[in-house]
Amino acid sequence: MSDIDVHHLAAAYALDALDQRERAAFEAHYERCDVCRADVLEFRGTMAEVAGALSTPPPPSLKDRVMADIAVTRQLSPSLVAPVPAPTGRSRGSWAMLAAAAAVIIALVVGVVAFNGGNDDDPFNDELAAVLEQPDSRMIELDNQSDLDGMFKVAWSPSMGKAVLMGENLPVAPDGKAYELWLISGDQSMAMYVLDTAGDGQVHRSVPTPAEPTAWAITMEPVEGSAVATGDIMFIAEV
């Protein structure tokens, strides 16, 4: 999908009128597009007014249920990362199961994986769509803490045990170095993949998730990959 096409999706996005694949493509685009971000904010403000005109008080009993719920619901910490609305399902039951399973899973260091950056007909798009179609899928943009350009997003589904990584606009790694993806689960960091930006600054990669991620991170490592991170965190998102 070209950038021009993506720009035109801002209005439909603000109305939640994109299917999941287009939603993901647009979200990957708009965080770094000032025009689209401004459009979406404005359109959402407009629709908030329309929403106000729909006002219908819920039954009074609902407040008691909500207040009872929140009293036993932990709040997320302020984020260092801009939250990206993710398509979410109702059931989170599988998370607990996965966390238990993760305790016995040994992470693998996977060697250098060379692959081509994505293009419009990339089968990666189907992999991304398959993940996003899961009711428990999440998507998050990693906060860029480096001095370099570029962005990463990760979408994953615990029930599928699979994640897809999207990188855009990435500078080529210095000679002998490469980006490496880490899945952080509790106090464990698992080396996932060494990433090759293939010269066009894009990374499209699907990876298994051997454990429940509590954060995703990218560091710069020697090109053969590290089992233990040696570089500074360049991109990070807490889940």
Binding site: L80, W182, Q188, S189, A215, A217, A227, V228, A229, I233
Partner: peptide, 15 residues
């Protein structure tokens, strides 16, 4: 399998 260094916000912004 290693532990990444503690996270630091590069630009902490007040809410």
């Amino acid at each position: 399998m290693g532990v990444l260094r503690p996270l630091r916000a590069r630009h902490p912004e007040p809410v």
